[in-house]
Design a binder for these strands. Sequence first.
DNA 1: TAGTGTAGAGAACGTTCGTTCTCGGCAGGG
DNA 2: CCCTGCCGAGAACGAACGTTCTCTACACTA
Lengths: 202, 202
Amino acid sequence: MNRSEAAERLLAAAEKLYYARGIHAVGMDEVRAEAGVSLKMLYQLFPSKEHLVAAYLDARDERWRGRLADHVAANGGSARDRLLAVFDWLGLWFAEPGFRGCAFINAFGELGGSAPLVIAVVRRHKESFRDYLVDLARGLPTADPAGVAAQLLLVAEGAMTACAVIPEPRAAQQAHLAATALLDGALARPVGVPEGAGAGRD
Amino acid sequence: MNRSEAAERLLAAAEKLYYARGIHAVGMDEVRAEAGVSLKMLYQLFPSKEHLVAAYLDARDERWRGRLADHVAANGGSARDRLLAVFDWLGLWFAEPGFRGCAFINAFGELGGSAPLVIAVVRRHKESFRDYLVDLARGLPTADPAGVAAQLLLVAEGAMTACAVIPEPRAAQQAHLAATALLDGALARPVGVPEGAGAGRD
DNA sequence: TAGTGTAGAGAACGTTCGTTCTCGGCAGGG
DNA sequence: CCCTGCCGAGAACGAACGTTCTCTACACTA
């Protein structure tokens, strides 16, 4: 078998098993068996389990962000619509069979103490997602697109974890409502006025 | 040593070690040593590691919600102020030395596949937190306090996980800003009007 | 004082798992 | 044909860990 084909099959097997059952719960031999690759080849390609896990997360990061960007590109018009399309897509993702939360948050919970390679991949993923939201928000007619993006990021992250712990389809709707409210609140404020002052208390 | 004193010391040791380093990374013998309790006593009180973990999370749930409620009671006036005090407290919590995210989300990531006892405790904790927010939101002059609470819950969860992965003090401020915007958006809408219709797009 | 139950200390056991080693086989080049 | 090197299959190794067992000491009771 080709080396690159073996790597692909190993990463696919790692993703399937690690995401479904957790990293600690899946041994190297099980990944090897699922991929149909010899243990020797596995260790030639990934010198340790931590390397395999980091590579799995890297590949998943690529695919996850690609799928999100595709959906947004296909369904979004204005910057506001594109940001809301992010939350549409989250709803679709949550409803997929086998959804078990954010793989990166799960991996962080599992390996947060040790495994610096993994921590770095998780951080990179979250930063990439935040940067993507900031990019989308730059098209908004608001004074602080980065701030709006940061707040939407919190809503998205919260929806992912809440939906993982308590599988409730309404979480995605609530996230969408929250995102809508945050966006419209930001857009109601004229460009150039700093935020932080209450807008409806008095 | 008294049995109840031993249980207390074991739970304190478990909390310290499990929260700081993760559950898989800490063996029973280490908890026993930190608590100064014999292994036999440990297994008399907690018949398996899963029981010990579940008890640790239960105790932490109690204390965490107690601290939050104390802060809110001490700093909140109106329902709106009380809900915002929740986010003040999150900021204080995030800034504590040794903060490593939400113990329940971490435990879920680590043991989500197995350990049904632990999963049940995590679910209970999240439901209790949501119920607490709903209780606070009931004092708001809004048509859908449960919806507002659900959205604030997403922001709070997102802040916890974002802050755990990327320790950035601004996450708490952003969460506070997002909560303020969501609250004021909800309060600007007159009671009795259902939400879901955009409020600032046209 | 002898007996009984319980506790502490730690060895021991069995399992799992990450990683490495061994062995047989096969391909390619002289 | 022979030698070299790589590969697959799987045994083996060493460590960690959850759990149980053994042995000794000690408090309490008749």
